[in-house]
Design a protein around this nucleic acid. Structure first.
Lengths: 155, 155
DNA sequence: GTTCTCATTTAGAATTATTCTAAATCTTGA
DNA sequence: TCAAGATTTAGAATAATTCTAAATGAGAAC
């Protein structure tokens, strides 16, 4: 049947949320689907807008709640790249993020195979998760040569 | 003489700002000094508070302006770790940041020597800068076992 | 030195992003 | 069916950052 992928995603969602003592509600499922549908690292606001298209009653507070729940149970990563809003990424594969200073777009980038730069933490530190962010210029912006800056707002 | 270190820092500041067409103003020097004095990854607000101690007239807008100028000219890095305020770090040596989910403290961590896992970017992408952030639990918090969470706000 | 121009600073308003609150609704298990 | 607790909701509140316009300051041109 044509949406077995969707059903699978839903099962996983219920499972993961459950493991954290959380319920798989229609809103949480919907927010998760929104993230899976267009993987362009949307902000909470953007998720809200998309979620409203097929679920007009959903509220911003719920979107934040759902996103938090999804992050909490390990189905979604939150990505902090610039001074703006947090972005969300349902790709849990190990990967980094390339942030284009020119157009603010975020691209997933592969990290070297069995990489984990093998960072040695001082004694007693327990790592749970790591993020690699690369800032630079994407091909399009490199061509058009606009906004060649690192920090925002300084002319 | 006892403050040659400071003079050196000031020379570098003037140089770097100048290279970007910016002036080395008393406020910019002061904000830079504040960052150098206590390298605990303060937020703009914290920098503002510290800056005011010896320069009561300085304004928040100026602190943001100065921080932007310093980031822009490559003397300071901004670090985005959680949903809270941006933090600032005057350590330009290559290093990563460990963020403790328990106490929100940020620690500098060394990256493997000639590391750069050699991330291969797709054709046309130009990397300017990269950040490695590790989220986890610091030794103190590991002992006391408080707040064992990844995302905020989900009970 | 005076004047012009432009950079910078400042206070405060405005905006943006996120969190909080309390009431309504829903779910689940007894 | 009911009680307890989880979730959602709207809207208020807070936090973080940016914007605005006026005042100040500094260097270039006279």
């Amino acid at each position: 049947m044509k949406d077995s992928g969707r059903n699978q995603a839903e099962r996983r969602l219920t499972e993961r949320l459950g493991a954290d003592g959380l319920r798989a509600t229609p809103q949480r499922e919907h927010v998760y689907e929104v993230l899976l549908q267009k993987r362009d690292h949307p902000t909470a606001e953007e998720v809200f807008i998309r979620a409203k298209r097929s679920k007009p009653g959903i509220s911003m507070a719920t979107v934040y709640n759902c996103l938090d729940a999804l992050v909490h149970c390990g189905l979604v990563r939150q990505v902090q790249l610039d001074r703006g809003a947090t972005r969300f990424c349902p790709n849990m594969r190990e990967h980094g993020h390339f942030y284009c200073n020119g157009c603010d777009t975020v691209f997933d980038v592969d990290l070297p195979k069995k990489p984990e730069p093998r960072i040695v933490l001082p004694h007693g530190f327990k790592a749970e998760h790591f993020e690699v962010a690369i800032h630079g210029t994407c091909p399009d912006c490199a061509k058009t040569k606009v906004k060649p800056r690192t920090a925002k707002r300084v002319k």
